[in-house]
Simulated scan of single mutants.
Amino acid sequence: MAAPQVSAPAHGLRHVRARHTKNFTILRNQLLQRPGSAVTIGVAAYLLSLPEGTPVSVERLARHFAEGTIRIRRALNELEAEGYLVRCRERAGDGTVRTRYVVHHRPGTASDTHVVPAPRPRTRPRPLSAPAANLPAPSPAPGPQAEPAPEPEPTSDQAAAVLLGLRARDPRLCLSERETRELGPAVDDWLRRGVTPSQIARTLTAGLPQPLTHRPVRLLAYRLREYLPPRATAHPADDPSPALPPPLRTCAGCHNVAFRSHTETHCRTCRPEAPLPTAPAG
Rank of each mutant, 00 (worst) to 15 (best):
P121S: 11
Y84F: 15
D189C: 05
A168P: 00
P125D: 06
I70Q: 12
R87W: 06
L183W: 03
R28H: 12
G108T: 11
L50H: 05
A234V: 10
A8V: 13
L224N: 04
R60S: 13
P185F: 08
T123H: 14
T54R: 12
G93A: 14
A206C: 00
A243Y: 05
S129I: 04
N77W: 09
C174W: 02
E67W: 08
V115C: 13
P209K: 06
G207H: 01
P152H: 09
D112M: 12
L79W: 03
V257L: 11
T233K: 13
A149T: 13
L61M: 11
L191G: 02
A258N: 12
V217N: 03
A110D: 10
P138C: 06
P280V: 10
L244Q: 14
A146P: 14
L224D: 04
L248K: 08
L204F: 02
P152S: 09
A130M: 12
L76A: 00
P107E: 03
I26F: 06
R100K: 14
A62E: 04
A161Y: 01
T123P: 01
A18S: 05
S129W: 07
P197R: 04
R271H: 07
G53W: 08
T123K: 15
T155V: 15
A66Y: 06
R260I: 02
A160Y: 03
E182Y: 09
E147A: 15
F65G: 03
A18H: 05
N256E: 15
T99C: 06
L248Q: 07
V102P: 00
T213P: 01
P119S: 13
N256I: 09
P138L: 14
E151F: 11
I200W: 03
L48F: 09
S7A: 03
A2S: 08
C251S: 05
L244W: 10
G282W: 15
R34P: 02
E80I: 03
Q5D: 03
A258E: 14
G282C: 13
R193P: 01
P35V: 06
R74G: 06
V43G: 00
A62V: 04
L48Q: 14
T265W: 07
A159K: 09
L163P: 00
L244D: 12
A110P: 06
A201Y: 04
A234K: 11
T155D: 07
D157M: 09
L163M: 05
A38E: 08
P136G: 09
R89V: 10
N29T: 10
S111W: 08
H104L: 13
A137S: 14
H105M: 06
E273N: 04
G12V: 04
V43Y: 01
A10N: 02
F65P: 01
T155L: 12
E179V: 02
P211R: 08
L128E: 13
G95S: 03
A45D: 05
R124T: 15
P242E: 02
S156P: 05
N77L: 13
A146V: 15
R17F: 05
R122E: 12
R60M: 14
S198G: 01
A149N: 08
L220I: 11
